[in-house]
Design a protein around this nucleic acid. Structure first.
Length: 259
DNA sequence: ATGGTAGACCTTCTA
């Protein structure tokens, strides 16, 4: 079973590119982030015609996440628990039905820039809420995949020029510590476990020729419960997609589970 | 060198 995550940077502005990739890669499940539209504007029919069931947690202009699956989606949850006043659409979760059900959570973790503002505080608070929620999910002792745009560069080897990121929210010690705390709950980084090649990136900025210079960062991750990690066959970054016409600044990450 | 680009949307915010 192939489970993908991809920050598409507006699903409607990118629809042609996104559908092309879906036809080529044909993931069984996909988590999309930054769809940048409300539920009614999501191109549901286009994905249904490719054979997907669709769940959307949209928002006007910013954020927005979606979950697509060839198998039916059950037990859908929209929004990260822990703060009823949080109106940002950054979390969607469902159980992928089948002989071996898998729970998949799609996340769009807050960027948090600039450091020292309420945005950075929101990022850290959101990560604590994710940690609390993940604890509960891990207690179910099921195959679980928490995949998405984490907006965290875990290690210096996950970027090209660490000094350039020193003051960025994505590389702050607190952000990295919160990411480690998630892993310490018992979650496995699928890419490191399956491949682990340093300087493998999932994002290249649109600015300053970042793609041409390979000035990238690895910020899209898939964390696996022990029961999912036992099933891990592989994990690939679809790097070439960044070179397509009208690309997102992120590329898809695909986890393959033996299901 | 404090730039550069992209998307949503209405003047600037977010990334």
């Amino acid at each position: 079973m192939k489970i993908a995550t991809w920050n598409v940077n507006s699903v409607n502005a990118r629809l042609e590119t996104v559908l092309k990739w879906f036809q080529e890669a044909s993931p069984d499940v996909a988590c999309l982030q930054e769809i940048k539209c409300v539920d009614e504007k999501f191109p549901t029919e286009a994905f249904e015609s490719l054979g997907y069931n669709v769940a959307v947690h949209g928002q006007k202009t910013y954020n927005g996440v979606a979950l697509l699956s060839k198998s039916p989606l059950e037990d859908v949850r929209k929004g990260l628990p822990g703060d009823d006043s949080d109106e940002q659409a950054r979390y969607i979760e469902a159980v992928i039905s089948g002989p071996r059900p898998v729970r998949v959570a799609g996340i769009y973790l807050p960027n948090g820039n600039p450091v020292g503002t309420d945005k950075f505080a929101y990022k850290l608070a959101w990560m604590q809420r994710l940690n609390d929620h993940a604890k509960g999910l891990l207690a179910l002792e099921e195959p679980l995949v928490v995949a998405g745009d984490y907006n965290v560069i875990p290690e210096a080897s996950d970027c090209e020029n660490p000094a350039a990121w020193a003051d960025d929210a994505l590389f702050q010690p607190q952000s990295r510590a919160a990411f480690r705390a998630l892993k310490w709950l018992g979650l496995t980084d699928a890419f490191l476990q399956a491949d682990g090649a340093p300087h493998s990136y999932t994002f290249w900025d649109y600015q300053a020729g970042a793609w041409q210079r390979n000035n990238g960062i690895r910020i899209d991750h898939a964390l696996l419960s022990p029961q999912a990690a036992d099933l891990l066959r592989g994990c690939e970054i679809h790097r070439d997609v960044r070179g397509w016409d009208k690309p997102s600044d992120h590329v898809p990450l695909v986890v393959d589970l033996d299901i």
